[in-house]
Design a binder for these strands. Structure first.
Length: 173
DNA sequence: GCCAACGTTGGC
DNA sequence: GCCAACGTTGGC
């Protein structure tokens, strides 16, 4: 477990990547994350190979993440998170009692991976899907593509900045 | 609640 | 290795 000094900020900007993670707020919302004792959680339950590859190989400590609330009304980007631990095996796949149990994933040969994220900010004015569709800089985001079911998606810096503009806040530190 | 799009499974 | 059937996702 990686404890971080409060003063120790961050991670260099260079090489930082941006992502969008989907969650159904009924299961887990940004409000849940904000209320966690450490405002940190492990992002478990991803059971799609393309998304798994991103979590295992590409999502790095210091990367920034938009949290998208799916399957709800209104559909929004609710806020942002910071990656605090890079890909490691998703242990919920090993637990037969867990909803995300997958017998083909073994501790010595894990199929599924997760990362740890820390709450960064909850947008006072969340950005709605409708806004994303209307703005030329965000309309092309992966999340807006018809039939896009990918739960871990790359976001460009331009899109990251545009989402913050729509939220009425400065793009984070 | 509906249903299109998508990923996975399994018979052949 | 093809592809139909199936289950799931997720916007509407």
């Amino acid at each position: 477990m990686a404890k971080k000094k409060a003063s120790a900020s961050p991670t260099p900007t260079a090489g930082r990547r941006y992502w969008l993670f989907k969650s159904e707020p009924e299961s887990y919302s940004i409000q849940h994350l904000e209320k966690e004792p450490t405002q940190t959680t492990f992002w478990d339950g991803v059971r799609n190979y393309q998304a798994r590859n991103s979590l295992r190989d590409d999502v790095k400590v210091g990367d920034r993440v938009l949290m998208y609330h799916s399957n709800c009304d209104p559909l929004i980007i609710a806020g942002t998170m910071e990656v605090v631990r890079a890909g490691y095996p998703d242990h919920t796949a090993f637990d037969p009692n867990d909803h995300h149990y997958d017998p083909k994933s073994k501790p010595d040969a894990p199929t599924w991976y997760m990362v740890d994220v820390r709450w960064q900010q909850t947008f006072e004015t969340p950005v709605t899907r409708e806004q994303l569709a209307e703005d030329p800089e965000t309309a092309t985001m992966v999340v807006m593509q018809r039939g896009s079911r990918l739960s871990i998606q790359p976001v460009t810096e331009k899109e990251w900045n545009a989402v913050h503009r729509l939220a009425g806040v400065k793009p984070g530190r």
